[in-house]
Amino acid sequence: MSTFLQFHLLTTYGPSNPNRDDQGRPKQAMVGGSPRLRMSSQSVKRALRESAFFELDLQGNMGIRTKRLFEKLVEHLDAQGVPGDVASEAAAQVAEIFGKLEAPNKADGNRVASTLAFVSPEEWRLAEDLAGKIVAGEDMPKEKDLKKLVLRHADGAVDIAMFGRMLAADADFNRDAAVQVAHAITTHTAQAEEDWFSAVDDLNKAEDTGAGHLGETAFGSGVYYQYVCVNADLLVDNLDGDRDLAAKGAEALARAIAQTSPRGKQNSFAHHPRAHYVLAEKGTQAPRDLSGAFFSPIREQPILDSSVASLVRTRDDIDEAYGQAWDADCIMHVGVGGTLDEIVLFAGDAVRDA
């Protein structure tokens, strides 16, 4: 039986554009028949992985997502004095463990993979060691057994353990995500707006009129609901049974989701929001999100307080109908009570006790 750690957050964003669509506008969604602003789960996970909380608290336990393993292996071998052709051949043999390589670049002979590979620190070290053994002329096993020298089902990469990976080259070494991240949506009706702007040429002569540059950019604003679900047992399994590291990862996640956001257009809008309301739950019951609280868009002012009230009411209603979906909870409500440190401790303990 799995233990689930669930987070429900409400965060206010002023005018900003943290996650853009293909036209540079804030991403949107129709929810309950009304337009909302949206941040994709992919953008949120990227922001979490790049946050200072992950970078500092989980240093040495973060994977790298890249198509450029071949290039880095060549650089590694080159630094050891391996001739270029030999280094390229060995690097190609190892890099193809993670995915098919494209044809060499005509200009420099570099090769990139056709798909991104999520490589853990341990796998990266093993890849470098294997490349060195190939250069040294050691006998190598066949392709299937060769992969087993590098690829791992579980190790110390917390971000891979959390968000999973898919290896097109070998599905046997895929990893199921222990952390599910929903798309964040505004709790109320919201649409993107357009900002027309101009820039002045500092050296423009007084007799010359007009702007040096004209442009436009899109932005939006709102209260976002974010849901995150952690399968604590799977997180521990993905980290090869290291419960302390899994708990450390859950603590970093709890800090990051309350204080981190996608960085689109951040220099233009300076959005640095922090969650106003965080509800953390743990239990062995089947997880459930509370997005239904906002299918009818919040209209009552103040929007933020009404959003909290709708979330709490929906939670109570679901629990009454289905039975309580949690064994313990922890709440931080800015201006009312609770602290982020309490949420972080709660998250860590939920994983330690799983």
Results as ranks from 00 to 15, higher is better:
G109N: 01
A79D: 13
A103V: 00
V82M: 05
Q93S: 12
F70G: 08
K100R: 13
E96H: 01
A107L: 10
L56N: 12
A127K: 06
H76W: 13
E128G: 12
N110S: 15
G60D: 13
A90R: 07
L116I: 04
Q59S: 14
N105R: 05
E89Q: 10
S120E: 11
L101M: 05
A79P: 02
K72S: 14
L101H: 01
V74N: 05
Q80R: 15
E102D: 12
A127L: 08
A79I: 03
F98M: 01
K133P: 00
R68V: 02
G60S: 14
K67S: 00
R68I: 01
A91G: 06
I64N: 13
A90L: 05
G99V: 03
V82L: 06
A136R: 08
A90C: 07
K72C: 10
A90I: 05
L69I: 08
R65G: 01
V112T: 10
Q59Y: 12
Q59G: 08
R65N: 04
L126S: 13
F118N: 02
L77D: 09
A113V: 00
D129A: 14
D129P: 03
E96K: 04
K72Y: 13
W124S: 12
V86W: 00
D78V: 10
G81W: 04
G84S: 13
L130R: 08
L56H: 13
A131V: 07
K72N: 15
A79F: 09
R125P: 04
P121V: 13
G137W: 09
P121F: 12
A136F: 01
V86A: 11
T66F: 09
